[in-house]
Design a protein around this nucleic acid. Structure first.
Lengths: 342, 342
DNA sequence: CAATTGCGGTAAAACGTTTGCACGTGGTAC
DNA sequence: GTACCACGTGCAAACGTTTTACCGCAATTG
């Protein structure tokens, strides 16, 4: 009973008109008489006509699909941002092809390859934390596939991106702690090569010097963001001469891991040692000892913006192929959100 | 400098052979001479040839894309299961098109429509909790697009699905509580029309009767799974004559909401009143007052299985269109995981 | 009245690939 | 010497759509 889908030709045959007329009628082309239009549309409905998108994609050299590559959907930040992407894409009749790199460069490369083959019209990426090589991104440029990076952006020059201004967020976070009386403030930062790590460090230094506190490099340690990495970082901080009374962590997951570690070491969390972190995930509100505050990074908005830019780029490449020397660099302000005491 | 991608014809022209020969050579067709093959492949590499997938999709009436529709990626259960789906899809050269229903029937219908238009080869769905109408699924059947449901499955007859056996999981959960000495055990169930709710209720009843306890219907209440719904449900349970000393909740999110509510009502959690729930999310381990135990529903495996079945179905439709009277109904056993005391 | 314009429509090319079929050339078997 | 086969290759159709070019006819314009 596998009925073949109706085609434009079938409609044409039944109505005894040429199939190009049918095509135009369905697109409300002005040169088609009202009567014909009506008859065509009527017949189309009757036969349950649905345009064959694969044929259209092929013909138009366009798939109305955007590829989204991100490290890990189970991180709330990314699952929220993909919702922003999806919503915006949908509004513009685009569809989302998904790929998770699981923070592996190798997988990231493979996914880029697949998406290129699938002829996505554009790509949005938040890069894996282990990506050191950028050739696969360069290759996209060569193929004229527009790319927008978000949140985790590579250190490349001529790219479009949207990200949060982590400097100001970090300044807020550190200042908040200073205002609470802390003088020795530690930081568990992310992998050094991440742009986001650099920003946090800059913000940290700014906040310290602004408040006339000396910047002690030994108080800023790096974690690879795994549980073990964070534990190592904590160990280092706790061993430090200038015992920190507060710690700024790279994100909420790191914060929670660090807090667990502190508890294990018999520290009184938010008394002996306080925490402030990034991401502002709902998870913290359920936690036993949540960080005092967290910097909101607006994942939904980042996703949304990135998609808007990408769509603009995809339209542009068609019209004016040159004049591609303007690069979007959207910075969204982050914001420290204090957590309510229960 | 927007260089057009190389086509098969271009290669043919340069080598002065017909493009069908090129096509065959690239596919290692046996009728092509070794020399030609080599020359073609050499030239292909040189010109950086990449087959135009859209053309192939069109020609083969196949897109190697599977649509995945689920309620909410920010729920850990789903973000884990999509990883299972993606991994399995990738292994089989398929790509994943994503859609979130956000638990809206309307959106679900729209997404199904979009995916149909995109000519996905098959669809995996976990239905929205508000979906009451199944017409959009029926329409997929009409178009011969295979569908596999997982976890949240509709009450339809001739469908393929994979789900967890929640009955046995619930029996384990309730028995666990009984063994701990509880006699008056409440349940906050999900929306009544969900299959998963029905199973939990069945399991609850089974466990009670097996242990020679009377089943009191007033101890089983429904929540729409929102914070408010859960609070209402809790209120009802706490007001009940037979004050429950333990509560089984629909999932970990409900548990956490219920626990917060209990705390607000000055109940001592896990003393006055204990909780056991479903999903076994990492979130619980960070929580102040986690449920005593949680039933693992194996989201990754469910995603994996669903994808495997779908792939099998997609291959089948091509070969033997009839004999479609066998329906996969895969049941994965769930498992109660006690949470460690810290 | 001749020239232009607008309308309603048709014909055909193009997009890149796969694939059934035919063709030619050797060689082998009878 | 004819018939047949295997091999290597080319031709052309097909997939469904959009779009360019064109055609005939009527109405409008100068």
């Amino acid at each position: 009973m596998e009925q073949k889908p109706t085609t434009i030709k079938e409609i044409a045959k039944r109505l005894n008109i040429s199939f190009s007329t049918v095509s135009r009628a369905l697109h409300n082309h002005k040169n088609i008489g009202v009567g014909t239009k009506l008859r065509v549309q009527q017949m189309a409905k009757e036969l349950n006509y649905e345009p064959n998108q694969t044929a259209i994609f092929f013909q138009q050299r366009k798939t109305f699909t955007i590829g989204v590559i991100l490290p890990e959907l189970s991180e709330a930040f990314f699952s929220t941002s993909i919702t922003g992407i999806e919503d915006t894409a949908e509004k513009n009749k685009y569809t989302v092809l998904l790929g998770q790199s699981h923070d592996s460069e190798e997988r990231e490369i493979k996914i880029v390859e697949t998406m290129k083959n699938h002829r996505v019209d554009g790509i949005i990426i938040s890069i894996s934390k282990n990506t050191v090589n950028y050739e696969h991104f360069e290759s996209l440029r060569k193929y004229g596939i527009p790319v927008v990076f978000f949140d985790r952006i590579p250190k490349m020059n001529e790219i479009h991106y949207v990200a949060c201004n982590m400097i100001s967020g970090t300044v807020q976070a550190v200042s908040y702690l200073i205002k609470k009386g802390h003088r020795s403030i530690g930081m568990i930062n992310g992998p050094e090569k991440l742009f986001a790590s650099q920003e946090r460090k800059d913000g940290y230094i700014q906040a310290m010097t602004k408040n006339r506190l000396k910047f002690d490099p030994s108080l800023v340690v790096n974690s690879d963001l795994t549980l073990e990495g964070t534990q190592l970082a904590m160990e280092e901080l706790l061993k430090s001469k200038r015992k920190p009374t507060a710690i700024v962590t790279f994100n909420d997951y790191v914060a929670l891991d660090a807090i667990q570690f502190a508890l294990k070491k018999k520290k009184k969390v938010n008394k002996d040692i306080s925490f402030v972190s990034f991401a502002n995930l709902p998870i913290s509100s359920y936690s036993a000892y949540p960080p005092l505050a967290s910097v909101e990074q607006h994942p939904y908005i980042q996703g949304q913006k990135a998609t808007e830019i990408l769509i603009e780029l995809m339209n542009k490449t068609k019209q004016d192929p040159l004049q591609a020397d303007a690069y979007y660099k959207i910075i969204i302000e982050s914001q420290l959100i204090p957590h309510l005491k229960k």
